[in-house]
Each structure stands twice: as C-alpha cells, then as structure tokens.
Design a protein around this nucleic acid. Structure first.
Lengths: 190, 190
DNA sequence: GTATCTTGATCAATATAATAAACACTGCTA
DNA sequence: TAGCAGTGTTTATTATATTGATCAAGATAC
C-alpha cells in the first residue's frame, strides 16, 4: 500500500511543502512526513483532509499513475506481509499458520520472491491454484511435506523444489517446529 | 464521509455477517460494527484489509453507487460538523471561531439546514460567496451583526433574516458571548 | 563569514483506533 | 421451556495514529 509514495508525488507535483499542505489540510507536517515515509497508517479521515486540500478524490488518488523509482534493496523488516489466497482447512485461525513476506511490490515486477513461514499444522490445501506460473523454493529451516501432482516428498533444510504451478500442489507442515521456506514465483499470483 | 454506509451495503450485498467479513479480513467484528455506525475513523490499512476480503479496490469502493434510505430524524449529537468555505481574517485559529453543524448529508438534499455557533470575534468576511441560493436564519442566542449589500443590522435572540446569497454578505460577532443561529440555505453550497 | 528562514525528519505526550470479551437480542431445536 | 447458535452492539484495555515541539541540513541574504 504505497499511499506514502503517491502522496509525496502528488504534493510535489502541486509544488507544496509538507508544511504548506499541512496548513491547508489541517493536519501537522509531522504526520505528512510520517505518511510519506510509510511510518504510519493514516486514518481515512486524515487522508481525506489532506486530499481535500489538494484537491483530489479518493478514487482519483488510488487510481492515479505516478512515477516510481524501483526499489532494489530491502531490509528484513521491509518485507511486506501478504495474505495467502489459498484455502486453509485446519481451523479458522488459518492466517496465523502461514506467514508470507514478499520482496518488493508484486504489481511492479514479473518475479515474485517470498519469505514463507509455515507454523506447525499449516496446510495450504490443493484448491484454487491453477494459475500459469513456475514456482521454486529452498527450505531454510524445519521440515515440510510437499505434494505435486501424484508425488509427495518430505523436505528439510537445504532441500529445494521447482514445478509448474498449474499442477495441483499442497504444502503441509506435519512437524512440531515452524518451517521457513524462501520461494520464487513467476509471474506473481497475488 | 459515509464509508460506514458504503461498507454496510457492500457487506450485505455479499451476504456476509460482520463476523464472517471480520474473519476473512483479519479485523474484529467490533471494528466493523463501529465503522458501519460511524463511531470510528478506520485507518487506510484497516479499510484496505476489509476491502481486500470482499474483494474490492479503494477506487471502486469510493466511486460505488449504493442505495440509501434517507435519514429523517437526527439527535443533536448526529449533526455533523462541517468546515466553512469562507475566509477568516481574525487569526489562524479561525476554525474555532465558527462551528457549523449540518442536518443530514448535503449531497443528498437540495435544502441545507445548519446549526451555527459564532464565537466572540468571529467574522466570515465577504469574499467568495457569490453562489446562487437563498439563505435564511433565526438567531437563537447572543447577538450578531449581519451586513447584506449596503445594509447592516444587529440581530438578537428571536430576530431573523433572509436574502439572496449572491448579494455580498458578512456575519460578525462583535459581542462577548457566542451567538447561536439556525440557518437554512437552498441549494447547498458545501 | 554568520544570521535567518525553510526544508523534511524525529521524539515524547496525547488522542484515538483496534482488540478481545462481554452483552442483549433473535430464531431455531429439542 | 431451556438451550444453542447466530446476529449486531458495547466496554475496558491495548496498540497506534496524531500532535506539538525540536532537530539538523540547505538555501538565501546581509
């Protein structure tokens, strides 16, 4: 959610300083600074006050095209958490069973790289996963059972996989410890 | 900002309960309840999580048409504070000098009714006020000086006014006490 | 050269959004 | 009738957005 980048571009395109925009919109310059740096999640109300001062509607703002300097390096804390599309069967607390942390912004790249953490008991199921893509990964720690088509294999640290995503596949962490996997996928599916 | 109404309609249109949507989006049902009732200003991040679960983009959400059962009755606490368009000269703290509380949602009506409170020293100035409309009001408490065209008059409790908004006009509270006015305007100017 | 102003970033204090657990209400089943 | 499962709401607590002030860096002027 690059609202910070959008706002920064929009503000500069209008030739405004953070303080100028702040006074026009009734928020503080500190808040605008933090939003632009992604250090805070603004409330809808705050963002609306800022956009009103430009002026620009939400619709225009979120559909706005803006120049973007591709980001190359990421600290571990910058890997953004994304939600899995797949259906989980374990229980309703599925979200906590799988953490997907993505390198960069998928919508800007054709290659998607993920840092995945499967909690004990995590199960991706096989549904809804017939997109055209190739998927590969290397297990960093823990163990995980991977089924691709007819084949099933237990994978441990250092092991790896690669397959065509159109083949039904399923990840299950049958062990007691979390399993960490670094995977890549092209094109992105999220 | 009727994001609550939009969300409520959207959720029901998808046949979801607050709890179902909550679990799909990763927020609590309480939050969704509060948003729908307008009891909280959701963060952009929270709203995005909810919309992602529908799924719907910000752009679609804010430009979405939705049925609206016109609200007829309002408790005093439901009169929404709006910001004056006019320019204030007193100082930079102008916002605190005039409180405008509106009956209903102007964008849905052709008649706008306001509960106005002018702080001591409040001055609307005469600028930027040449819209086509008729404006009328009755003074509830305090006193206020109203200038319309060439004419100027002090008005006290029970006094009233009506004029064509295209004529330059100005409200000034010259007294020591706040002045409360109930006014009506058609068509709405905000 | 040093003031002075403006820029964006940062910090502690405060306001408020978000959570988790209760609540009351409805409809359904035994 | 009681009990259970669903609904939306409310409350106390926690998390965090927002403020107001301060900060260092650049620009301009004198």
């Amino acid at each position: 959610m690059e609202v910070g980048e959008r706002l920064k571009y929009l503000r500069k395109a209008n030739g405004l300083s953070q303080r100028q925009l702040a006074s026009k919109s009734g928020v503080t310059n500190g808040l605008i600074s933090m939003i632009e740096q992604g250090q805070t999640n603004p409330s809808v109300a705050s963002l609306k006050r800022i956009l009103d001062a430009i002026p620009m509607t939400f619709s225009e703002f979120f559909s706005m095209e803006y120049p973007h300097q591709d980001k190359v390096f990421f600290k571990s804390t910058e890997l953004r958490e994304i939600n899995p599309v797949r259906v989980f069967r374990i229980d309703d607390d599925a979200a906590s069973f799988l953490s997907l942390r993505q390198v960069g912004d998928a919508s800007r790249h054709t290659l998607q790289m993920l840092h995945e953490t499967y909690a004990p008991g995590a199960d991706t199921g096989t549904e809804l996963y017939a997109h055209e893509a190739e998927e590969a990964g290397i297990i960093i720690s823990g163990e995980i059972e991977l089924s691709v088509g007819e084949k099933t294999q237990m994978l441990g640290p250092g092991d790896a996989y690669i397959f065509d995503s159109r083949i039904p596949h399923r990840f299950r962490n049958l062990g007691e410890a979390p399993c960490v996997v670094v995977s890549a996928c092209t094109p992105p599916t999220f």
